[in-house]
């Protein structure tokens, strides 16, 4: 496919008087990894929630494989099936085992044969080193393990694009690495990814494009070396120096 997998065009989103997104543009080509950076409250989560149709946009468009998915006539459930989302707080289903968490959508939503789904789920769990936890319930897993399962759950539906919302922010520092290495592997296999992140080092290594969200727009975007190393905008420099002071770069 030639065009971008995901395209955000002039998206506006407000909560009451609080205009969070004032016309965001973002284009994500196939196999590309886009890192979304920006201060806390800059609207990263909101943008990802708009893109995954968990929020209705107030203006603008979101296109998935060239199809306008913000058109109200479209079946939103149908569109969400083609995206995978991983949340900051994992959001695994606590009443379902790890295996059931992973196989739920492929069987119930996509109607794929149970045997095939099970086999794939076991393969995926083995790849993240959690084969022995397939029968466990999420509350018996560490945060890092839960987040790895959440990634696998999102991958199990074979999404066109994977949206990751600060997936390491809720983790103890020592657990961040294991989750990021799963993302790195998924990216290496060619998955199209948009990830909101505070891990600048990781963004620099893995992302093809870094987009800086500020004041409700993408203020600056480009290759990581440029945006993170030699930003054009003063606001970007300010943000990065704050992050450096916090020891995150």
């Amino acid at each position: 496919m030639s065009g971008p997998v995901l395209e955000v065009r002039s998206v506006v989103k407000a909560f009451g008087d609080n205009v969070v997104l004032r016309g965001v543009d973002l284009s994500v080509a196939e196999h590309q990894v886009v890192a979304l950076i920006g201060g806390s409250g800059s609207g990263k989560s909101t943008l990802l929630r708009c893109a995954s149709l968990l929020e209705t946009v107030d203006d603008g468009q979101v296109l998935l494989d060239g199809e306008d998915v913000t058109d109200p006539r479209i079946d939103a459930d149908q569109v969400r099936r083609r995206m995978g989302v991983v949340f900051q707080a994992y959001n695994l289903f606590p009443h379902l085992s790890v295996l059931d968490n992973v196989t739920l959508a492929p069987t119930v939503v996509h109607g794929r044969p149970k045997a095939e789904v099970l086999e794939e789920a076991h393969t995926l769990l083995a790849r993240i080193g959690l084969s022995d936890k397939a029968g466990e319930y999420p509350d018996r897993l560490s945060g890092g393990q839960q987040q790895r399962v959440a990634i696998v759950r999102a991958l199990a539906v074979h999404p066109r694009v994977l949206l990751l919302d600060e997936i390491t922010s809720a983790l103890d520092p020592e657990l961040v690495g294991e989750v990021l290495s799963v993302v790195r592997e998924v990216a290496a296999q060619g998955m199209t990814i948009v990830m909101a992140t505070h891990e600048m080092g990781f963004a620099r290594q893995v992302a093809d494009t870094v987009a800086f969200l500020d004041g409700g727009v993408v203020l600056e975007s480009g290759p990581p070396q440029q945006v993170l190393g030699d930003p054009v905008e003063a606001r970007t420099r300010q943000f990065l120096s704050r992050v450096i002071d916090a020891g995150r770069l």
């Binding site: 149908q78 959001n91 289903f93 739920l104 959508a105 539906v157």
Partner: peptide, 10 residues
């Protein structure tokens, strides 16, 4: 929990 379920296409 609802967001997670809907994001999976349920």
């Amino acid at each position: 929990q609802r967001a997670a379920a809907r994001s999976l296409g349920l």
